[in-house]
Amino acid sequence: MIDKLATLQQAVRDGIGDGDAVVLGAGLEAAIPFAVVFELIRQGRRDLELVAPISDGAADMLFGAGCVGAVSAAWVGNVSGGLGHNYRRAVEQGVPRNVVVNDYSNFSLGMALMAAAYGMPYMPVRSLLGSDILASNPALKVLQNPLSDEADPVVLVPPLKPDVAVLAVQRADRFGNAHLWGSLGVAQEAALAADRVLVLADEIVEPGVIASDPNRVVFPGFKVSAVVHEPAAQHPSPMTGIWKRDTEFYTDYHRRSRERDGFLAWLEEWVLGVPDHAAYRAKLGSRLDDLRIRGSALAAPANFAAS
């Protein structure tokens, strides 16, 4: 097996280019790979197409930093705060730049990734009929179900094939085999669809740990192009069993990003003025300790013995 361990800087430099379609936030509100979001901003990546059902806060930061040219998403904003101020400025005023919005619902976005994962020309869905999402996203087409003799319109969702899916996980080995648990959002579809998968592991473990429970492997290690070890890579979002959500951080971001100047000051303080994720963790200090989940609610072991 190939050792895929890389630093955050290397993995972002080599794995995500200008103009790439990137899945960030496949887990909806959990396991959002903020460490990569911050590094993309520091490296000045441009013209990204963001792909995600919901990426709490992260997408808004990338809009504000001018990294995004297009977004294919169901929801962009701050889940506990409300409207995304940077997203609003970009769409309403072209500040700091104009962006293209491709509207989806959560289900159709997930099915678009699934279509790409399985090499299908489209996925038929019964959602979106009657919704103006069909008008504002011309990639979605309505067709009569050819297998039905009765009127039966279905929406054809074309594949969305990301260049890169970035996924934060609880643990992985250095070869790209990973365990992810809790609600999964579209992590599986995103990983199976993307050309490259960048894994951010809170913990690096021996391969035997991952192999002991292959049902907790959501996407195969051979799809993974790089593994980065960064504890709390998902901060301020939660990670099941390891990190609580830092709601105060989101609230502070939401308040300070209301005006462009406030956002730029926030960006300097938390991203541009911070060299890497180790420095970010150090800056959080005891606040990060308070977010660590210390309780234990372990799953029962599952026996895989063969004889």
Binding site: P53, A73, D103, S105, S127, L128, I133, A135
Partner: peptide, 21 residues
């Protein structure tokens, strides 16, 4: 309107799916 909105709201999330199905 979607062409030149005065306010860009967050979008559907799962709402359009729940409303439809």
């Amino acid at each position: 309107g979607a062409e030149k909105p005065t306010v860009k709201l967050p979008g559907s999330g799962g709402a359009a799916d729940i409303a439809a199905m």
